[in-house]
Simulated assay, not measured.
Amino acid sequence: MATVGRAAEGRAAEVGPFFALRTGSGDPGAEGYERIGAAYRLTGEGAAAPALRGRVEAVAASLGTDEPRVAASLTFQGLAARVWSLALGPAALSSAVYDLRPDRLWWNPARTAPDDLWWPGTPPVKGEPGGLAGQLADSAYAHLTPLHHAVSRAYRVSDRLLWGNAASALVGSLRVLHDWCRARGLDEAAERAMAVARAQFAYPPLRDTGQLATAPPAFRRRTCCLYYRVPGGGLCGDCVLRR
């Protein structure tokens, strides 16, 4: 499994930093990383964990918004795009999906991709049954479900809005990967990316989040991520408010 994992990791990293994962030896804790699963937990007072709270505050500062709810929504969408990309890239290019468990994946919210996430050693590949689309869902929702709970409870963001963010993030990752594959003549990989991504919209929680078009990949969501409330933000391309 280690050889397959290394091959999947290397090919996906060529697509771009969101599809890449820091690996190799070292001590993540000594470099300011913590296991990402800890960021998905709420404190005893129902507040976000320090790492997640710090990321939300950094996003708010970079966007110039004084609305924590807006920053939390966009933080979730950014992390969702990262999670989907790490699963989708190897699935399309190598027919493999990482088994990046939250209790073993390390995160430094102060860093950017690919150095924000670190798996010491070689990431394992999921081998259980369920097909490639099912394995992709298992890998992604191991992160998205607890992250969704933490953001919705700590920042009072709508459950439906956040799943719309997850859907939008998936299609965004799909577009980047699909275009990259087509530009290099990797038509089979492009179609595989489309198939496993489309399968996610057949079931909750993404089933009712919007309308997915596949030629080329495009999405019109049924909720708004709140980016329009950012000073000078405007509307996203897939926003429900766009006419």
Rank of each mutant, 00 (worst) to 15 (best):
T3N: 07
A7Q: 06
A8L: 01
E9N: 07
E14D: 14
V15Q: 14
F19K: 14
A20N: 11
T23F: 05
G24L: 09
S25H: 11
E31V: 13
I36A: 01
E45W: 01
L52Y: 07
E57D: 15
A58N: 14
A58M: 13
G64S: 06
G64W: 01
D66M: 02
P68I: 04
P68C: 05
R69S: 08
R69K: 08
R69L: 02
A72G: 10
S73W: 05
L74Y: 11
L79I: 08
V83C: 02
G89K: 01
S95L: 04
V97W: 06
Y98F: 15
D99V: 06
L100V: 02
R101T: 02
W107F: 00
R111F: 12
T112Y: 03
P114D: 08
P114M: 11
D115G: 10
D116I: 07
L117S: 07
W118S: 10
P123Q: 03
V125H: 05
K126C: 13
E128Y: 14
G131M: 09
L132A: 14
A133T: 13
A133M: 13
Q135R: 15
L136F: 11
A137F: 14
A137R: 15
Y141R: 11
H143E: 06
P146Q: 05
H149A: 09
V151H: 03
S152G: 09
S152I: 00
R153A: 04
R156I: 00
D159P: 14
L161E: 05
L162R: 01
A166P: 03
A169L: 08
V171L: 06
V171C: 09
G172R: 10
L174Y: 01
L177I: 06
L177C: 06
D179V: 11
R182F: 00
R184N: 02
L186H: 11
A189F: 03
A189R: 03
E191D: 12
M194F: 02
V196I: 12
A197Q: 13
R198W: 04
A199G: 14
Q200L: 11
F201C: 14
Y203V: 13
P205C: 07
T209W: 02
G210V: 02
Q211M: 04
T214A: 10
R220L: 08
R220W: 03
R222I: 00
R222N: 07
L226G: 12
R229D: 04
P231W: 00
V240P: 00
